[in-house]
C-alpha cells in the first residue's frame, strides 16, 4: 500500500476505532452496574450500592480502562493521519469501484468465501449426508476437504489440463493423508 493510501486507511480505521471504543466503554459501564446481565428491573439497589463500595472487584474495571486507552490511541492515530494530509476524499463512486476490481481484493473475497463454504457448508453438509459410510473414520471430512482443496487449486492455478490433473491428485492424496493421520492414527475427532 502506498503511504498516502495507508494514511487514508488509517484515518478511516481511527474513526471506526473511536466509535468502537466508545461502544465498548458503554458496555463496560453496563457491566459495572449489572455484572450478571439480569433484567434491569431485577437488579436490586442494594447490589448497585455494593458494587460502588467494592468497585475494585468489578469485572468492568479493566475493560473500561483499556477502552479509554484505545480511545486515546485512536485519537492520536486520527491526528497523525490528518497531519499527513489524509482526508476522507476517497469515498467516491469511481474510487470504490476501482478498489472492488483490484485483483488482491477479489482474491481476498474469494478465499474467505471458499473457506466459509468449506467450514460452514461443506463440512456440516457432508457430515449429515455421509455419516453412515465408514470406509475410513472421518469419510465425510475427507470428501469435504477434497472438494475444498480441489476448488482452491483450480481457482488459483493455471488453466491447463496438466495443472488440473496434478491438482486432482494432490488434493486426493492430501485429504486422504490428513483424514487417516488425524482420524485413524491419532484418533482426533475431525470437524
Amino acid at each position: 500500500m502506498e503511504k498516502s493510501t495507508l494514511r487514508r486507511a488509517d484515518l478511516l480505521f481511527s474513526i471506526a476505532l473511536i466509535l468502537g471504543s466508545l461502544w465498548f466503554m458503554i458496555q463496560s459501564i453496563k457491566l459495572f452496574l449489572n455484572p450478571f446481565g439480569r433484567k434491569w428491573e431485577a437488579v436490586p439497589a442494594e447490589a448497585v450500592k455494593e458494587t460502588l463500595t467494592f468497585w475494585y472487584k468489578s469485572p468492568a474495571l479493566m475493560p473500561f480502562f483499556v477502552s479509554l486507552l484505545v480511545l486515546l490511541c485512536s485519537v492520536m492515530l486520527f491526528h497523525v493521519a490528518m497531519k499527513s494530509g489524509a482526508r476522507l476524499d476517497f469515498i467516491k463512486k469511481d474510487k470504490i469501484a476501482a478498489f472492488l476490481k483490484n485483483r488482491e481484493f477479489q482474491s481476498f473475497v474469494v478465499i474467505t468465501l471458499l473457506l466459509c463454504v468449506y467450514a460452514f457448508v461443506l463440512i456440516p453438509v457432508c457430515g449429515k449426508l455421509l455419516v453412515r459410510i465408514r470406509i475410513i473414520r472421518g469419510f465425510p471430512f475427507f470428501v469435504a476437504t477434497f472438494i475444498y482443496l480441489l476448488s482452491m487449486m483450480l481457482a488459483f492455478g493455471h488453466r491447463k489440463l496438466g495443472h488440473a490433473v496434478r491438482s486432482l491428485l494432490v488434493s486426493f492424496l492430501v485429504s486422504g493423508i490428513v483424514t487417516y493421520a488425524f482420524g485413524t492414527l491419532a484418533k482426533i475427532p475431525l470437524p
Binding site: I111, L115, Y118, A119, T145, Y148, L149, M152, M153, F156, G157, R166, S167, V170, S171, V174, S175, V178, F182, I188, P189, L190, P191
Partner: peptide
C-alpha cells in the same frame, strides 16, 4: 497454489482438534 490450501485445511483441523 498447492501449499496454501493445505495450510488452510490444517488450520481448520488444528483449531477444531
Amino acid at each position: 497454489v498447492f501449499l496454501m490450501p493445505i495450510i488452510a485445511v490444517l488450520s481448520i483441523v488444528g483449531a477444531y482438534a
